Computed example of a mutant assay.
Amino acid sequence: MTTHHPTSLRLVYGHAQLHDCLAFADANTAAEEAVEITALAAARTWGEARQVRMTHLDNPAGPDYHEPAGDCADDQPFDINELGTVMQGDWPRMVTARAFALLPEDLQDRFGTRRSTAHNGDFLEVPIDHESELVAELRERGYEVTRDDELINVLDGRGFNPLVG
């Protein structure tokens, strides 16, 4: 008997350093999302930041999303950590919150604990020591699961955010 692996059941996971627990992301889009986050963080001027193409995420430096605090002309220096949504921890969205949409509810209840943050909502805390059992359970249910700690932490903004870093 062959097991069918629908593309929606491809997960990447890793140790999210901010919350010191496991986090999960959709393996079909995670790498592209990480490229978008990294590209915006690398922008040196407001013009560059506005031009970063976002397919999976909103661009918090885009004309529809930022509240200018001072001179945001295209040639002005850009620092991603000065964006309100980044300073408040709203962008990128906490990677540890994605488990609510990605993991079956019974596994969320069995392996994780819903935790709240003061400003950014709830996340699922999945202790590192549950990794082998949870991954085995997911694979048994037909999920394709791979571990990539670096990718998970880029998705959490760890590459640029001093609050996370």
Rank of each mutant, 00 (worst) to 15 (best):
Y13T: 00
Y13K: 02
G14S: 02
H15E: 10
Q17P: 00
L18T: 08
C21F: 04
C21G: 14
C21E: 02
A23C: 06
F24P: 00
D26G: 03
D26C: 03
N28R: 14
A31E: 14
A31R: 10
E33A: 07
E33K: 15
A39L: 10
L40R: 03
L40A: 08
A41H: 04
A42C: 06
R44S: 14
T45V: 07
W46A: 09
E48I: 06
A49Q: 04
R50Q: 13
M54S: 07
T55F: 10
T55L: 12
L57H: 06
G62K: 05
H66V: 09
E67V: 11
P68T: 11
P68N: 11
A69Q: 14
G70P: 05
G70Q: 08
D71H: 11
D71L: 09
C72E: 14
Q76S: 15
I80L: 14
N81D: 12
N81Q: 07
E82Q: 15
T85M: 13
M87G: 04
D90G: 08
P92M: 01
R93K: 12
R93W: 01
M94C: 01
A101S: 15
A101I: 01
L102F: 03
L103F: 06
P104Y: 08
E105P: 05
D106L: 08
D109A: 15
R110G: 02
R110H: 11
T113H: 10
S116H: 13
S116V: 12
T117P: 02
A118M: 10
N120S: 06
D122Y: 08
D122F: 11
F123H: 09
F123N: 02
F123E: 00
L124C: 04
E125Y: 14
E125L: 10
V126A: 04
V126D: 04
H130Y: 09
E131M: 07
V135C: 06
A136L: 08
A136T: 12
A136S: 13
E137L: 05
G142M: 06
Y143C: 01
Y143D: 00
E144C: 08
T146S: 09
T146Q: 08
T146I: 12
D148S: 02
D148H: 03
